[in-house]
């Protein structure tokens, strides 16, 4: 399997302590742990949004930690996608413009028409096609989060990061969002997702457990099949319990 992301001895300010792991192409990885354990911080450091104190992170062949602010920004733009818990959008743009934003920024006005077509197609595919011209405060949380996911894949990134994407959603919306991720993963996307919801984690290939900044353990579940749901749930519960979850 291809190594997509390699994290080596990552440390940050007492919040992360010497963390190492690998993400392979096509995997969907869940990162779990109690609040304050450093999960989100891990995400921000691995993606280059924050600057780690120590350690290295390779995205394919490029080492990220040593790069300058501007260089990391470039990598984020072209090779990474982000979905946040709070469904952060640019409030003065409508839904489709939000989705198009990173692509338009990267490519300039020239290819805007093509970008729009692509965005519309994705929106149709994920069943929010008729929301294109709505303003962001006119759509539900689940719909908005799905739009954010689409935004994150517009540039065909190497890897998708998600920080508690269902945290602010109700059951139903959370379900559709997770389904979106699963669909993308089936289509080949590599996803690293922080979550506190075991029902989400059980749908991932692997689960990492972070406790007080330390990587305590790893659970390999393999590719998700619907029939395996109950079994996986049991497995993950037992595993989580062992950490005092």
């Amino acid at each position: 399997m291809d190594r997509l992301l390699r994290v080596e001895s990552l440390s940050k300010n007492g919040i992360l302590k010497d963390i190492s792991f690998i993400v392979y192409k096509g995997e969907m990885i869940a990162v779990m742990g109690p609040s304050g354990s450093g999960k989100s911080t891990l995400l921000y450091n691995v993606s280059g949004m924050d600057n780690a104190d120590d350690g290295k992170v390779w995205l394919k062949d490029t080492e990220i930690v040593g790069l300058s602010e501007e260089e990391r920004a470039k990598i984020r733009l072209k090779k990474m996608g982000f979905v946040f818990q709070q469904m952060n959008v640019l409030s003065n743009l409508n839904v489709i413009d939000n989705i198009m934003f990173p692509a338009v920024y990267a490519n300039g006005k020239k290819r805007e028409k093509q970008i729009r077509e692509k965005a519309l197609k994705l929106m149709e595919e994920f069943e929010i096609g008729d929301l294109a011209d709505h303003m962001t405060n006119e759509v539900s949380g689940g719909q908005l989060q799905r739009a954010c996911i689409l935004r994150s894949i517009m540039m065909d990134p190497e890897i998708l990061f998600a920080d508690e994407p269902t945290g602010a959603l109700n059951q139903r919306a959370a379900g559709t969002v997770i389904d979106t991720f699963i669909t993308l993963n089936k289509e080949g996307a590599t996803i690293l997702m922080v979550t506190h919801d075991s029902k989400v984690a059980l749908k991932c290939d692997r689960v990492l457990y972070i406790l007080d900044g330390v990587l305590k353990g790893e659970l390999v579940l393999g590719k998700y099949e619907h029939e395996q749901e109950e079994e996986r749930q049991k497995k993950i519960n037992v595993w989580l319990n062992s950490f005092g979850w």
Binding site: E70, A73, L77, K78, F84, N88, L90, P102
Partner: peptide, 10 residues
């Protein structure tokens, strides 16, 4: 902050 996260340069 969102723009920075996405990768828009300063």
């Amino acid at each position: 902050v969102l723009k920075k996260a996405i990768g828009v340069s300063c």
